[in-house]
């Protein structure tokens, strides 16, 4: 029953807000909202690795690229070859898109597993170096595969993504990751962050836990990539460069490592800020955006080094002290 109410209200919220946004908001702002939603998924999932598990991944855009190109290949090259092309009814189209999203997420997760298993066994900064390199390898590989557009970019991807999908999936990913980190098994991620030796001593494999976090984060990055690809209907490898990975890290750090509310807030804040500064270029003639953007980051980090939320969540303000566990 409780499940039904939750799902019902979820669908209702997505339907109402999706409709309001698509009907009454100008196209330009719709695009910004869509980027916000996609960045929320990326920031929240990266927080699982960088914030909750205490590892430092620098290649999140790489996993997003895997998902984006995988989804584009499926919907633009594979599905038409199987006979799904041209006009189709709304139901089939969305069902196909759902399948594409899942497969793209899974393939990004698989790549995450392959990258994670060798590199997460090491301690310290190795993960940062490996993931940084990995992101570049993905980008350069895509650049050199002509079948998926190479340097020209991938064109003609069907525009299946919309604000309903983006809104729904950003809520869903945040809720799932929030449920994971508040569950008892989810506390293992934070145990690894606090003390690896102690985690081992109570019978937990730190490598296994880290890989789990990494694969889950990669999965969501892949889904975000697929949403991105089908929103713009065009992909260019240069989108997924180190700069994008760094922006996602900035969102996680600014929001607070280990706070999902923080990641959501910072993802929206930084995306909007970057867009809001765009008109400035028209007046000054030079691109001052990045200068101001980095100034904001520096000031915020100086005044609040733990991030906007630190490790607290929005929900903490509503329940000051949790009820006792045995009568919870």
């Amino acid at each position: 029953m409780k499940q039904l109410i939750q799902w019902g209200s979820f669908i209702l919220v997505v339907a109402i807000f999706g409709w309001l946004l698509t009907e009454f908001v100008p196209d330009y702002y719709q695009t910004i909202i869509a980027i916000c939603g996609i960045n929320v998924i990326l920031a929240v999932s990266l927080n699982l690795v960088n914030g909750f598990t205490g590892q430092f991944s620098m290649g999140h855009a790489g996993f997003m690229a895997v998902g984006a190109y995988m989804s584009a290949t499926l919907s633009t090259l594979l599905l038409p070859a199987l006979g799904f092309s041209g006009e189709m009814n709304v139901f089939t189209q969305n069902l196909l898109f759902f399948g594409v999203l899942i497969v793209s997420g899974l393939s990004a997760g698989l790549i995450g597993f392959l990258v994670g298993v060798p590199s997460l066994r090491l301690k310290g900064d190795y993960l940062a170096i490996v993931t940084l390199g990995f992101g570049e390898i993905i980008r350069t590989s895509i650049l050199n595969i002509e079948a998926i557009g190479g340097a020209r970019g991938f064109i003609g991807i069907p525009q299946w993504s919309n604000l309903y999908w983006v809104l729904g999936l950003s809520i869903l990913s945040t809720v799932i990751i929030a449920r994971v980190v508040t569950s008892i098994p989810g506390k293992q991620f934070m145990a690894v962050r606090d003390d690896e030796t102690a985690t081992t001593s109570i019978g937990l494999s730190t490598t296994r836990i880290k890989v789990r976090a990494f694969v889950l984060a990669s999965f969501f990055a892949g889904v975000a990539g697929a949403l991105f690809a089908h929103y713009y209907s065009y992909l260019n490898p240069s989108t997924f460069n180190f700069n994008y990975s760094f922006q996602i890290i900035a969102m996680v750090v600014l929001g607070g490592m280990g706070s999902l509310s923080g990641s959501v807030t910072a993802a929206i804040l930084l995306t909007v800020l970057l867009e809001a500064l765009r008109p400035l270029q028209d007046y000054t003639g030079v691109d001052l955006r990045m200068v101001i953007y980095s100034l904001v980051l520096i000031v915020l980090m100086l005044t609040r080094p733990q991030g906007i939320f630190g490790r607290s969540e929005v929900t903490d303000f509503f329940k000051k002290r949790r009820s006792r566990p045995h009568n919870a």
């Binding site: 008892i184 934070m190 962050r193 003390d195 985690t199 001593s201 937990l204």
Partner: peptide, 21 residues
């Protein structure tokens, strides 16, 4: 451990919960 190794940023209960895996 000789130099205490708790999960410092987890609650007292959470420390026990992690070990109850």
């Amino acid at each position: 451990f000789q130099n205490i190794r708790l999960f410092r940023d987890l609650s007292v209960l959470d420390n026990v919960l992690v070990a109850s895996h």
